[in-house]
Amino acid sequence: MSSRVEILNDGGYRSDGRRQYELRDISIDTSQQGSADGCCTLRHGLTEVLVTIFGPREAKMRSQTLHDRAVINVEVNVLPFSTGERRRRARADRRILELAATIKSTFEPVVQTALYPRSQVDIYVQVLQQDGGLLHACVNATTLALICAGIPMTDFVCAVSGGVHSTEPLLDLTMLEENDLPHMTVAVMPRTGKVTLVALETRLHVDRFAEIFKLAGEAGQALHKEMKRAVRNRTSRLVDAMETSMKQPVGGERDVVMEDRMDF
């Protein structure tokens, strides 16, 4: 590992200048990509993922469909240049399969699959850059992409990672912090405040766990506001576009009629 960097200095600042509970910059881009039904490029600091949704559509493999609900299929692809060291991961790599399985089971109860029997929803995740918080970026991006695709869900799923530095809880860890600290990812459904995903992989005392767990739940609510704003922006843009396009084709004549009426 590189030289020892102070994770939390005496002034209460972290290595990238954030405060303990400060989240990284989040940027959301939901513009159209290729022929996808919905897509979202989401950046948490330097971590960047692109999620595209296809569906609900007819499944490629008919045998895998279910008669009473839609099947969710998740494929994750980590780009070889997304980390500092170039590493090619096969698609059957266990870590990637696990990530895909986690995303799949997180969204299965949230997406209203029962509305689309015998069909399939494909979620393709491209990891463009990694700097910690991969799972939470994937979950947030998938939520937004599903919303953009117009797939009905019961609620948002907002995920945040958290960790502890000695006794101080931190939120939204970078790669550097993740390597050194026990950390976990929590996904909440903001409307009910319930938790759909908890993933802790490093040793942590039970009392500390409770502390970060609660904190991450609150941070999820904050993140929800940001995500909701992005969805609203997109929708208002779409509505504007619809209005202008509805006016234009019938352009000249109707406008004149309107003016005539106004003159009366």
Binding site: F107, M184, T192, K194, T196, L200, V206, F213
Partner: peptide
């Protein structure tokens, strides 16, 4: 977790959403 009250792995991937207090109760 171990007998020294240290959690090693907590995994709840999807499934029914649970209230935070419920999860803490189960951990207990």
């Amino acid at each position: 977790l171990n007998a020294q009250r240290e959690l090693c792995v907590v995994q709840k991937a999807g499934g029914v959403p649970l209230a935070p207090d419920e999860i803490l109760r189960i951990v207990g």
